[in-house]
Design a protein around this nucleic acid. Structure first.
Lengths: 348, 348
DNA sequence: GAGAGAAGGGTTACCGATAACATCGCCTCC
DNA sequence: GGAGGCGATGTTATCGGTAACCCTTCTCTC
């Protein structure tokens, strides 16, 4: 057994944690054999394998993932790029991604994108060129990060909308926001409302956001007037401000909101304007964030399976990285309208 | 210039991204000199430095952080261990940590701890032995992870309470929950309530949680009866269930809740029991989560600077890793009572 | 004019793994 | 009985860096 330019004995005495060399030395085999045992590649006799595994246990040896990656081993690490984890959608998607990744034995890094700021260069956030990446691209910052990624990085993304190019990027997942918004709008119309007003979340692209589009689809299909959408932000406050001046208008009887936080602000503005919910104003949100069911009144909203989407996004990436081993392509739930107290029949 | 067993030209043509060798070759210097320029260590002439920097820019070279860490360079990477990022406190703390770490040039990994599950061995989550770690230890899972960490890993933690051992672990930060809870309780007493009931969040240790303790402190100091604390969980639902049977009791006029989500559930239970908030029942929360200000009624609560705490936790770790370079020790805001609509004078 | 430093930069070893290739028995086949 | 093949291991090169050490040149100083 030759040890080239290395004295594991010294390492051990210096208190560093065990390396593959220590295991090899104690087990009386070469370091490569230990590697074989760990990775299950190559042929190792049963006796040797057992011995090595025993020594590994004794020494409490843990492979150094960094070294493994450097040496060109399997990737097994992902960095998630997301903006503003304060938002329920992003946070829930991240949770799904992390859970799926951890279960599959990947380590996950996270890097938050600043909104409204010039993104210097996303690649500096990666641990190495070619690092695998997932992007939560529900908003502008995410989309910019996604498009600015060099072509050689393996990436999967959760995006706001189905790509509408001829040859869509197959490494994307999305929820059918458009259909969901249309569904929610039809629901409100079915309650007898003449039309439905809409408070929009910021768009992730230059196009009309999917939720806005779906709302318009439904109104047009029903031949109803399409009011100018009100522009909100991401926070309750922005919803409050967006509708404050119009909500006193009693001809407004139904408002669909781009997310639950906006709905919260809208309901407050309505209350301050003396409107009764759902008596003479129905409010519907989007996302089904955790507090929604307990609000006063509890919020009718569209439940979106963000966690499932996040898991699916990871599985997609997993397939991309390890086509043989990755599990079958997963599914996630379709959007679902959850009817609660905040919506009701149009006032007489 | 000797190139030992390496042919960068081939690498480049094979489409790999530039390495330090490529830069060295193009700049006509040794690879070590490039390293010196990058790290600002050692002496390099101004001309050489400029040349190297220029080549770096031309080639779009990015140092491989993995290789750097392997080679024993400065650490500059942290893994955050947290449970359940769905909770506002944990999520906000994580945000603060990530922001501070990213600003300081660290890359951050995240690994979520499962609650109510046997933690196999946290160290397998780390990228290498000795990896730097931050733990969000507000609950049981976090505390267990923190205590199970081997002594050689550099760690900083955000914990629920000031350690009360003789020689407290200096690498911990916390918010003064106890004083805050006492303050909120005194506030309610000052409104004329005879006593204050409490709905507790789960404890992170076997001791009485800090918030519960603070609430008791205030009641005892004022000589008021101390009702049995009600045990809640982390969700609105658990708050709802915890108080459902008692909230109809009109002698209960003030309820302090361990967090805002519990308060949400409590308010709903109270409403269903026909209680008017704040007319004949005052409810106070804890955390000041984002929706609180827009609830109906808006929630009186204790604002906690979780983001500041997260930033401080990172700075602590930073000082531990790089005592010379790390910035001065940071401060974060003290808890602050935010009075809103959900609390008022005791009913006559 | 010579020795001592300081500047500037090159060499070599090493971090902890993986991959490709080499080696060594031993058994089978012609 | 020698060639070929295969199982089980050992060797060497490499990944992309950092650190310690070494080697020239100059510039000072006495």
């Amino acid at each position: 057994m030759g040890v080239i330019g290395h004295t594991p004995a010294e390492d051990a005495s210096r208190g560093r944690s065990a390396s593959i060399w220590d295991v090899a030395r104690v087990a009386g085999v070469s370091q490569q054999t230990v590697s074989r045992v760990i990775n299950g590649k190559g042929r190792v006799s049963e006796a040797t394998r057992a011995k090595v595994l025993q020594v590994i246990a004794e020494l409490g040896y843990r492979p150094n993932k960094l070294a493994r990656m450097l040496a060109g081993g399997p990737v097994r690490s992902v960095t998630v790029l997301t903006s503003d984890t304060a938002l329920y959608g992003a946070a829930a998607t991240l949770r799904g991604m992390e859970e799926a990744a951890r279960t599959a034995g990947f380590s996950v890094g996270i890097s938050v994108l600043e909104r409204d700021t010039v993104q210097p260069d996303v690649t500096v956030r990666l641990n190495r060129p070619g690092e695998a990446v997932m992007v939560i691209a529900f908003d502008d910052a995410g989309v910019r990060a996604l498009t600015s990624l060099p072509p050689d990085v393996p990436v999967a993304a959760a995006v706001e909308r189905r790509p509408d190019t001829e040859a869509p990027d197959p490494w994307q997942v999305w929820l059918d926001d458009r259909a969901a918004a249309a569904h929610a709008t039809r629901y409100l119309l079915s309650l007898g409302h003449r039309t439905v007003h809409y408070v929009a979340i910021p768009s992730s692209t230059s196009d009309l956001p999917q939720r806005t589009q779906g709302w318009m689809d439904a109104l047009k299909a029903a031949g109803r007037p399409v009011p100018e959408p009100l522009q909100g932000g991401w926070t309750p406050r922005s919803g409050y401000l967006a509708v404050r001046d119009q909500v006193a208008d009693r001809s407004v009887t139904a408002i669909l909101c781009g997310n639950d936080d906006l709905a919260l602000g809208v309901m407050r503005a309505a209350r301050e304007a003396g409107r009764d919910i759902p008596g003479d104003l129905s409010v519907v949100g989007f996302d089904d964030s955790p507090p929604s069911a307990y609000l006063n009144p509890s919020l009718t909203t569209v439940r979106l399976d963000f966690e499932g989407l996040g898991r699916a996004c990871f599985d997609l990436l997993h397939r991309r990285l390890e086509p043989q081993t990755a599990p079958a392509f997963p599914t996630w739930s379709e959007p679902e309208l959850i009817v609660r107290e905040s919506s009701g029949p149009a006032p007489a």
